[in-house]
Amino acid sequence: MSEPRLAIQNVSLSYANGRGGKTDAAPTVKEVSLQARPGELMIIVGPNGCGKSTLLRAVARLHRPDSGRILLEGEDVWSLSRKQAATRLALLPQTPTAPEGIRVADLVRHGRHPHQGLFRQWTSADEDAVRRALLATDTADLMDAPLDHLSGGQRQRCWLAMALAQETNLLLLDEPISMLDLGHQVEVLNLVRDLSAKGITIMMVLHDLIAAARYADTLTAMREGRVVASGPPREILTRDMVRELYNVDAHILSDPDGNPVVTPAVGGALSSLSPSNSKEQSYV
């Protein structure tokens, strides 16, 4: 196999560094190493505060690691300029905000910013990239609609279109389905899978272990800043792993395609095991 598209090498960082001296239990990442191939869909799961979003934000260059390296096609992402980086990796933040009344096409056009300069104006290459992004996300019909008139799933597809218009090989998604109902979740996750099938490497943080197991090429489980398991879902998803991550007793079933399905056992919470996690269980 050729070199990995994304290589996270022994990365550690503590979130508190950038946050004006706040010292409460901030999520940290400890000595994480991961790799992703071209077209791989890697989904990171773990309890609240396990560091999965922090890791994603480090790859997105929003937090600089204290140590370790993050290589994109062999180059350290922190050695790139802001603009260069934005042409090679795109991020969909957890709760993106848009100005009231912005139209879909105008939102998606922002994705071309890294390809433009102070005096380099809009070109047909930009136009083509935007059109491809709209088509790939099936949002071409919504082009002239105001973003705030759309459903949650449609909105998320439009944000994905903006990220796609950057024409990057790596796409980082921070809990893109957390605010959506089941129908819209499936809508967005199917789109994400289609994008990875086109060769884009996708690293996505998800809360939903069941959806993650269903869609991931590689499922990566984190706890307390460390990766506890990483691999194809049907190989790594075990009863013990679910218990280790969430302190939940669960059954691992198989769906008709052979993918693992996690169903928490009724009354299966093992609250006595780890008092520090008792608060988080209610969200799982």
């Binding site: 997105a60 802001r82 934005a86 933040p93 905000t97 848009a98 890294p114």
Partner: peptide, 18 residues
Amino acid sequence: RPLSALTLGDDSAKALGH
């Protein structure tokens, strides 16, 4: 143009290279 990206939030503006 940078200000337009900034109206999408700091994270998005950074991700767009600003």
